[in-house]
Amino acid sequence: MAKSYFSDLVFKRIESLENGDYENCRFVNCILPNCDLSGINFIECEFENCDFSTSKLYDTSFKTASFAKSKLVGLRFEDCNEFLFSIDFQDCNLNLSSFYQVNPQNLSFENCNLKEVDFTEAVLNEVSFDNCDLDSAIFKNTNLEKADLRTSYNFLIDPETNNIKESKFLLQDLPGLLHKYNIHIE
């Protein structure tokens, strides 16, 4: 069965999505929680004020996709097709999502809720976490080389089990890096 192809379209307030390839499309105010997005290709697509919480992402492609003001709770980005995986998030709720072993071509977070997000074994080189809440986010064997966490908060990152070479932090972030030593920094 041939896949449908959609190009240069705007989808507003839709509640279901046809399997296919979407190129240079915009999705606005779409309510698609628990949706099966398996095998769908999103190429240079924008999502604004959408809800994709707990949707299935098996072999879903995000090639230069951007999400703004969207709810993406409980998504498993490790199930996505990793070929040319490039995605950015602005003002999004990604709580309880997972980026386990993800190796993106490009990834950035701005003003996002990333509470209890799993970044275990992810390769997050040069990723920007700009003003993000990382409360209870999991960083284990994560490569954060040259990542920028200067404006983010509530994170606990163990420098002994994560690569933080040339990453950027603020002095006030020391407790989040030294928490396992149970020391008090004033």
Score class of each variant (00 low, 15 high):
residue 2 A to F: 06
residue 2 A to M: 07
residue 3 K to H: 07
residue 3 K to W: 05
residue 5 Y to W: 03
residue 5 Y to Q: 11
residue 6 F to E: 04
residue 6 F to W: 10
residue 7 S to G: 03
residue 10 V to L: 14
residue 10 V to E: 12
residue 12 K to Q: 14
residue 12 K to I: 11
residue 13 R to N: 15
residue 16 S to P: 00
residue 18 E to V: 12
residue 19 N to G: 03
residue 20 G to V: 10
residue 21 D to E: 14
residue 22 Y to F: 13
residue 23 E to M: 11
residue 24 N to M: 13
residue 26 R to T: 11
residue 27 F to Y: 08
residue 29 N to T: 09
residue 31 I to Y: 15
residue 34 N to T: 07
residue 34 N to G: 09
residue 37 L to E: 04
residue 37 L to H: 06
residue 38 S to L: 10
residue 42 F to D: 06
residue 44 E to D: 15
residue 46 E to S: 15
residue 47 F to M: 04
residue 47 F to D: 03
residue 53 S to F: 03
residue 53 S to I: 04
residue 55 S to N: 02
residue 56 K to I: 13
residue 57 L to W: 06
residue 57 L to T: 05
residue 61 S to C: 11
residue 61 S to R: 14
residue 62 F to Q: 01
residue 63 K to Y: 10
residue 65 A to P: 00
residue 66 S to L: 06
residue 68 A to G: 01
residue 73 V to N: 06
residue 75 L to V: 06
residue 82 E to D: 12
residue 83 F to L: 11
residue 83 F to N: 14
residue 84 L to D: 15
residue 86 S to I: 00
residue 87 I to G: 00
residue 87 I to P: 00
residue 88 D to T: 08
residue 88 D to M: 08
residue 89 F to K: 02
residue 93 N to W: 01
residue 93 N to Q: 04
residue 93 N to F: 01
residue 95 N to V: 01
residue 97 S to V: 09
residue 102 V to H: 02
residue 112 C to V: 05
residue 115 K to N: 12
residue 116 E to M: 09
residue 118 D to H: 03
residue 119 F to Q: 06
residue 120 T to Q: 14
residue 129 F to V: 04
residue 134 L to K: 02
residue 137 A to H: 04
residue 143 N to V: 15
residue 145 E to H: 08
residue 147 A to I: 12
residue 149 L to N: 07
residue 149 L to F: 11
residue 151 T to A: 10
residue 152 S to F: 07
residue 153 Y to F: 15
residue 153 Y to Q: 08
residue 154 N to M: 08
residue 154 N to Y: 13
residue 154 N to R: 14
residue 158 D to Q: 08
residue 160 E to Q: 14
residue 160 E to G: 00
residue 160 E to P: 00
residue 163 N to K: 11
residue 164 I to P: 01
residue 164 I to G: 01
residue 164 I to A: 05
residue 168 K to P: 00
residue 168 K to T: 10
residue 168 K to D: 02
residue 169 F to M: 07
residue 170 L to N: 15
residue 170 L to W: 01
residue 170 L to P: 00
residue 172 Q to V: 13
residue 173 D to R: 01
residue 173 D to S: 13
residue 175 P to N: 11
residue 175 P to G: 10
residue 176 G to F: 09
residue 177 L to F: 09
residue 177 L to T: 09
residue 178 L to S: 12
residue 179 H to W: 15
residue 182 N to Q: 12
residue 183 I to K: 13
residue 183 I to M: 13
